[in-house]
């Protein structure tokens, strides 16, 4: 294997990794703050892709210029976010009070509902919106073609990670959020409107998932059932990285992406098993994940 190919393989690995990362941080935020493990996150990711497809397709048919198409990505994600503002008060607000298994089951049900609704509305054929992908063209890296659009995804994911880190650790709002996550009652006593805060956080998590779906749409396509595979892989990333850890999500996702990419190049037979092998080794050696907090006695 020549060094040029190694570079391309690393880039490919990160391409895959970042899609998992974008879903996992949403999951982590929801788990970290509200203690809800949202299986429906995969459905929201898919919804982002489908809504963006609808927007882009309409815009492209109407002959709008390319910058309008770019605009479809955040708009599509925002629409998914609006959806969050509906389901959060209707469903999730009631789940916070219930036991975790109930919320798992309810979000599992929600995932099924999302998946089938998308199929009802958009039909079963895969939908693609290639305008942006083709418009960006390909770059030549060390003599190899590489789609330019992928760099948009890299830049975007890095921006999201940085933005979230600044938000959580450097702003007042982030401090309030972290405080509330640690002690909900205390925060409420100190005058924080926990209910609105939760809705905002939920919006943020869902918006990121929607953005993930939207930004990956030009490079892949939207199809019925697309939310299931990323959600279970994101669970794996979540466990490996440590529940609730932003850093863990990034590291674990990259690890899985890179191991998979090199696995395909060197041992094509192993593909899917690799991810879960990493998972099982992590579970045995370090069950709380790479950056997870130590388990408390209650959790034991």
């Amino acid at each position: 294997m020549d060094p040029e190919t190694v570079v391309i393989i690393i880039l490919n690995g990160m391409f895959y990794a970042l899609s998992l990362f974008l879903i996992t941080i949403g999951l982590n935020i929801l788990y970290g703050f509200m203690k809800v493990l949202n299986i429906a996150h995969g459905g929201l990711y898919a919804t982002g892709a489908f809504l963006t497809w609808a927007l882009m397709n309409t815009a492209a048919k109407a002959g709008y210029p390319i910058y309008i198409l770019w605009l479809c990505i955040p708009v599509g994600a925002f629409l998914v976010g609006l959806l969050a503002l509906v389901i959060e008060p209707l469903l999730f607000k009631r789940l916070y009070r219930l036991r975790e298994e109930y919320s798992l089951l309810a979000t599992f049900g929600l995932m099924l509902v999302f998946d089938d609704s998308l199929r009802m509305i958009f039909g079963g054929s895969p939908l693609s919106a290639n305008q942006l992908y083709n418009w960006m063209g390909t770059l030549t890296i060390l003599g190899k073609s590489y789609p330019t659009y992928n760099f948009v995804i890299y830049a975007f994911a890095i921006a999201v990670a940085l933005g979230l880190w600044i938000f959580f650790f450097k702003t007042k709002m982030g401090r309030i959020l972290r405080g509330t996550a640690q002690d909900r009652e205390m925060s409420a006593c100190l005058g924080v409107n926990v209910s609105i805060l939760y809705t905002e956080t939920f919006f943020l998590a869902v918006f990121i998932a929607g953005l993930g779906g939207a930004i990956y749409l030009p490079a892949t396509n939207a199809y019925s059932g697309m939310g299931f595979e990323p959600i279970v892989l994101s669970f794996a990333v979540m466990i490996i990285g440590g529940l609730g850890s932003l850093k863990g999500a990034l590291v674990a996702a990259s690890m899985i992406g890179l191991v998979r990419a090199f696995g395909i190049a060197l041992m094509p037979e192993l593909e899917l098993a690799v991810v879960f092998l990493i998972l099982i080794i992590t579970l045995i050696v370090r069950p709380r994940g790479l950056f997870g907090k130590k388990f408390t006695r209650e959790e034991k």
Partner: peptide, 10 residues
């Protein structure tokens, strides 16, 4: 599969 980039590169 949704991502064939690694396969194509290989």
């Amino acid at each position: 599969a949704t991502d064939f980039s690694s396969h194509i590169t290989a």
